[in-house]
C-alpha cells in the first residue's frame, strides 16, 4: 500500500476478453446511440423534467387519436351535411338527435323516421339481454366446474379460453361454414329432420346463432374472471361448513354465491357494456345484419351511416354514437360503483 496514497490496494490485471464481453460492448454501444438524445435533453432541461420526455410520445399519440376524437365526437353530433372535416360542416343544433328520436310509437320501429336505427336499438337490446345472461350462466357453471377440478384444470381452462383469442372474422367464418347448407350441422339435421335448413337465412335461427356464437366466442374470458373470484374465496370457509355438516346445495347458495356476488355483478356489467357494442363477428356471420335487418345492431348502424353508404351522414352517426356512449357511460359508472363497493 505504498504506491497508492488514496489507500486503495493496487489494481489487479484486466481479465481477458470473452465472447460475452464482446456482446456486451456491442449492446452498450447500441444503447449509447439511443441514449444520446435523451442524455442531451436531460442536460438541457434537468432531471426533474425528464418524466415529461418519457410520457410525451405516448401522450401525444393518445391525445391525437383518443382524446381529441372524444372532444370532436360531440361536435359532430351537432353538425350536418356530408363534409368530413368538422370546420366545413354546418351547425344544425339538435336536428340529428331529433331525427333519431322522432317516432310515432317507441315500441314500434316502423313508426319512426329512422326505422333502421330503432330496429338496431331493439335488436341490440334483445341481443344484450340474451348474450349477457347466457354468457354469465355458462361462464359461471364452467368456472365452478373448473374450480373443483384437482387435475387437468390448466388444460380445460386453456381449451375454454382458446376461442377468446381468435379474430371475429375467423370465428364468424368457422361458424358460417359449420352452419352452411353443406355444413356439418345440416348433415346431422338432414338425418334427423329429413331436410336441410339454411340457418342464417331464417330470422329466429339466425338470431339464435348470433347469440350462440357470441357466447362460444367470449365465455372463456368471463370464466377466467369468475374463476379468479372463486379462487379468492378462502378454503377454510368450506372446511368449516364441512365440519358443520352443511349440504353442498346449501354451501353453494349460502357461501359460494354470496361471496362471489360482487365479482359476478362486475362481470355482468362488463358483459352488458361489451354486448351493446356487438358488431364484428355478428356482421360477418350474418352478411351485414341479415336476413333483412334481423341482426342489424347499433354499431353497424353507426358504421354504415358514416362509412358504408354513398351519402355519408357523419352527423347522424355521431349523434347515435353519443347516445350509445351515454348508455355505456351509465354502465361504466355502475361498474365503478360496484367495484368500489366490492373493495369495501
Amino acid at each position: 500500500m505504498t504506491a497508492f496514497d488514496d489507500g486503495y490496494p493496487p489494481p489487479g490485471r484486466a481479465r481477458p476478453m470473452s465472447a460475452a464481453d464482446r456482446r456486451d460492448r456491442v449492446l452498450e454501444a447500441g444503447m449509447r446511440l439511443l441514449e444520446w438524445p435523451f442524455a442531451q435533453l436531460q442536460r438541457l432541461i434537468g432531471l426533474r423534467r425528464m418524466p415529461w420526455v418519457f410520457v410525451l410520445p405516448n401522450m401525444a399519440l393518445f391525445t391525437i387519436f383518443v382524446f381529441v376524437p372524444v372532444l370532436l365526437a360531440i361536435g359532430y353530433a351537432f353538425t350536418g351535411g356530408t363534409e368530413l372535416l368538422l370546420w366545413n360542416r354546418p351547425f344544425v343544433g339538435l336536428e340529428n338527435f331529433s331525427r333519431l328520436l322522432s317516432c310515432g310509437s317507441y315500441l314500434d320501429p316502423a313508426s319512426c323516421e329512422l326505422d333502421l336505427f330503432w330496429t338496431a336499438v331493439f335488436n341490440t337490446a334483445w341481443y344484450t339481454a340474451f348474450n349477457a345472461t347466457g354468457t354469465l350462466v355458462v361462464a359461471l357453471v364452467t368456472a365452478l366446474v373448473l374450480n373443483r377440478l384437482t387435475r387437468g384444470k390448466a388444460f380445460f381452462r386453456a381449451i375454454f379460453f382458446y376461442p377468446v383469442l381468435l379474430s371475429p372474422v375467423v370465428v364468424a367464418l368457422v361458424w358460417k361454414w359449420f352452419l352452411a347448407r353443406n355444413g356439418l350441422l345440416n348433415a346431422v339435421f338432414a338425418d334427423l329432420m329429413g331436410q336441410r335448413t339454411i340457418f342464417l337465412l331464417e330470422v329466429l335461427w339466425s338470431r339464435f346463432w348470433v347469440v350462440y356464437v357470441s357466447i362460444w366466442f367470449h365465455m372463456g374470458f368471463y370464466t377466467l374472471i369468475i374463476l379468479a373470484g372463486l379462487q379468492a374465496i378462502p378454503r377454510d370457509i368450506y372446511e368449516a361448513a364441512l365440519i358443520d355438516g352443511t349440504s353442498r346445495w346449501r354451501q353453494f347458495w349460502r357461501l359460494t354465491l354470496p361471496l362471489l356476488m360482487p365479482n359476478l355483478l362486475v362481470v355482468l356489467v362488463l358483459l352488458l357494456i361489451r354486448s351493446v357494442q356487438v358488431f364484428d363477428e355478428a356482421w360477418v356471420l350474418t352478411d351485414g345484419g341479415g336476413p333483412g335487418t334481423s341482426n342489424t345492431f347499433l354499431v353497424q348502424f353507426i358504421y354504415e351511416t358514416a362509412f358504408a353508404t354513398d351519402v355519408r351522414l357523419y352527423g347522424l352517426a355521431s349523434a347515435a354514437s353519443v347516445l350509445m356512449g351515454l348508455a355505456l357511460l351509465v354502465l361504466t359508472l355502475v361498474q365503478l360503483w360496484l367495484g368500489k363497493k366490492a373493495e369495501n
Binding site: 486503495y8 490496494p9 493496487p10 489494481p11 484486466a14 464481453d21 452498450e28
Partner: peptide, 21 residues
Amino acid sequence: LENLRMKRAEIDARVAEAARM
C-alpha cells in the same frame, strides 16, 4: 463505472480490487 465511460481495463482492475478486498 461503465456509466462514467471508464476504460475497460480500469473497470476490470477496480472490480478485481474490490472483489479481493
